[in-house]
Amino acid sequence: MLLTVMASYVWAQDPVLKAPGAVSAGQSVKLAVQGHGSATFYLVGPDRVLKRKISLGEEIEIAAEDLKTAGKYEAIACNGGNCSNTQFNVLPSQPAQLIFFLHPSRVPVSSGNAVNATALVLDREKNVVWSSANVNFKIDLPDGSSSTRAVPTTRGIASFAMDSRSRQGKVQVTASLDDVSEPRVIQQVAAEACGLRMTAAPTGRFMTFQTDPIRDCGGNPLPDGTIVSFTKTDSTGRSTVDSPIKKDRAVARFEVTGPAKVSVACGVVVGNELSLGGAR
């Protein structure tokens, strides 16, 4: 009787789990579990739950596949109604990937703090790397010049805002960390028209109205296809035409048979007005 009781004590000992040390995401780990006999092992993680039979006294190997997500894990071993548990943290591994947003994809020139660059540092398992690191941003401008800026990450994010430059064209910003780099390109585009002006010239019974090259206040030509509105007002009423810029200029043609006023506008920018058949 005594032997039976002792044997059952020896062979059905409560399991005791021992937490591992620092664990990196995506690495396998071994957990020591004391005791004798068999038990059921559970692993509860941020994105999964495992259950399997184990033999007490042997190490439990948890595969790298099951430890991809960084966060808090709880290991539980149960033998009948007796359970033992332990917790351990899986930390992000080395930076291996950058998620990089460069916004907006088109920005008017000379706009303050208009461009936002945000990089998110991830490890190879796509966990945010919380530990501080310096992300380098290399800015290549349309005139060929370039500059760099190092921004430390806070909670895995490095971010800064910058002014758009005064010349239109492509701006490439490359975010890099160690041997990982991500380039993005945005377009700096002309701002509102500045000093919009047109002239008139007779062509048969029509008058042709042509703008001077349309540029913004920084001298950047507005892109072809931008709409310029011409309005003629005379005794027959009002005539309007929305004409797209072609080769930096917009052109409209009206039949003018008497005194008339012609004005020009581009979006909310109003240009000069011509009085025909009277004082100009």
Binding site: T236, R238, S239, V241, D242, S243, P244
Partner: peptide, 11 residues
């Protein structure tokens, strides 16, 4: 950008 349509003799 094509077509361009003018609105004439508005009254």
């Amino acid at each position: 950008a094509d077509p361009v349509i003018s609105v004439e003799s508005q009254n």
